[in-house]
């Protein structure tokens, strides 16, 4: 067990964004967190990554209580995240978006400070689907199309050499070919030992690669199980059909 979420609560005014959620994550797993709009998925990732503090409850990373730690400290310990709405360093060239995490204390510690950040940044960008000699690598990141901004998000997280990757709707807004190119990448990352928690809206896409799924609705954990169990569950179908029929 690499991560333990224990009775987590978070309110925004009258809204219970996360309402007594608990679960555990094992090393090397892909966990998919699914749920309709406003279910609390992003809030959950914000809580784990330290961007917001819970009202109640605990988060344990490898047995260590990380509740309330700062985002940079949590990243330093080995939990990296992406943002649902990409947050590039828009004025800086794409490659510098990846150099920044490479300059972090964590990466310096893990690599002993050897190696050229620019070379490593290009390797990482290539890994997430940039062409090695593409113009995009030197262009200001703010000028890139949406699909590439999502890839920058993933590359920034990977650059930290984390143990856990928190991916917030990495696939949303991507075209079909883009989705089918990223899914195998995630499986490869899992094979390399990363633990992945991915938040997704579209259950179908993630059910193919997830080991387990957690369903959130209005801040509450509705159920947890294998993709088959979740996809055939009456309650889950009802939530999705009730909303928009996104399951299909």
């Amino acid at each position: 067990m690499i991560l333990k979420i224990d009775n987590l609560h978070k309110r925004f005014g009258g809204i219970k964004a996360i309402d007594d959620v608990s679960f555990t994550v094992n090393e090397g797993e892909i966990i998919a967190v699914v749920g309709p709009n406003g279910a609390g998925k992003t809030t959950l990732l914000n809580l784990i990554s330290g961007f917001i503090k819970p009202d109640k409850g605990k988060i344990l990373f490898k047995g260590r209580d990380i509740t309330g730690m700062s985002p940079s400290k949590i990243a330093e310990l080995g939990i990296a995240r992406t943002f649902q709405i990409p947050r590039p360093l828009h004025k800086l060239p794409t490659i510098f978006n990846i150099v920044i995490p490479l300059l972090s204390p964590r990466v310096k510690r893990l690599t002993g400070g050897v190696g050229d950040e620019l070379v490593r940044a290009i390797d990482i960008l290539e890994e997430v689907g940039f062409e090695r000699d593409s113009d995009y690598i030197r262009k200001p990141a703010g000028l890139l199309p949406h699909g590439y901004l999502k890839r920058i998000e993933l590359a920034r997280a990977l650059a930290l050499r984390p143990e856990i990757l928190l991916l917030d709707e990495l696939l949303s807004g991507l075209s079909r070919p883009e989705v089918t190119s990223i899914l195998p990448l995630l499986t490869r990352l899992k094979d390399r030992g990363f633990t992945i928690i991915m938040v997704e809206h579209r259950v179908r896409d993630v059910s193919a690669i997830a080991d387990r799924m957690i369903v959130l609705n209005e801040g509450v954990k509705i159920m947890e199980g294998t993709p088959e169990e979740v996809m055939t569950n009456e309650k889950v179908i009802e939530i999705y059909v009730g909303r928009r029929g996104e399951l299909a």
């Binding site: 985002p71 940079s72 990243a75 943002f83 360093l89 978006n97 204390p105 997280a157």
Partner: peptide
């Protein structure tokens, strides 16, 4: 410059802003 551009991104990069 990264902090000026996007602070949360720098925090997420493991850097103490």
């Amino acid at each position: 410059q990264a902090i000026r551009d996007n602070e949360p991104a720098v925090k997420a990069s493991g850097i103490n802003v």
